[in-house]
Design a protein around this nucleic acid. Sequence first.
DNA 1: AACTATACCGGTATGAGAATGGGTTTCTCG
DNA 2: CGAGAAACCCATTCTCATACCGGTATAGTT
Lengths: 86, 86
Amino acid sequence: MVRTPLTPEERERGERLGRLLRSARGERSMVEVAASAGLSAETLRKIETGRAPTPAFFTVSALAVALGLSLDEVAQTCVLVPLAPV
Amino acid sequence: MVRTPLTPEERERGERLGRLLRSARGERSMVEVAASAGLSAETLRKIETGRAPTPAFFTVSALAVALGLSLDEVAQTCVLVPLAPV
DNA sequence: AACTATACCGGTATGAGAATGGGTTTCTCG
DNA sequence: CGAGAAACCCATTCTCATACCGGTATAGTT
């Protein structure tokens, strides 16, 4: 096995990331935010809809800057799923 | 052109990210940190050496957790390169 | 009704991340 | 000297991110 396919958990994580980014976008248009972050609107749409569940680090970083988000908060929101609590 | 090849600037950015992660690793071994972050040692080595200049967001996120780094600081350190100074 | 803007969707193409395995070097310790 | 760890390097392979295209749907405006 060379490259493990994405697990359902990873896809759910991507969906959480997408929902977070979309809510942060608010009323602004996809085209505007995507241009502000330096990526295509199609890519932004796929990330927001969860169809690109594991985007590149600097892509998310640019989006966080464009949306005024903290990367640490973004990561925590997406990763901190209730798994194996104490 | 469907997928633009990485520019030299993007590769330099990846090298900065790699140097930052390596210095944060300190005396710990690659195998240990990679296992702690849930990725292979080869992948960590490629990221540290800049041969994987645009790693996935959650990969860097897991590394930041394993190394005790702030994602925002990581992003700033890598993106905030002295370009076009006054 | 026609036009515009926005977003969704499927398909296509390509570059690159991620993992594996094998090989090499260097260092340290028994 | 031999064994082991640690890091580097290369080749291969699978999967996916990114981008562009065309088409569709909806809502708002004129």
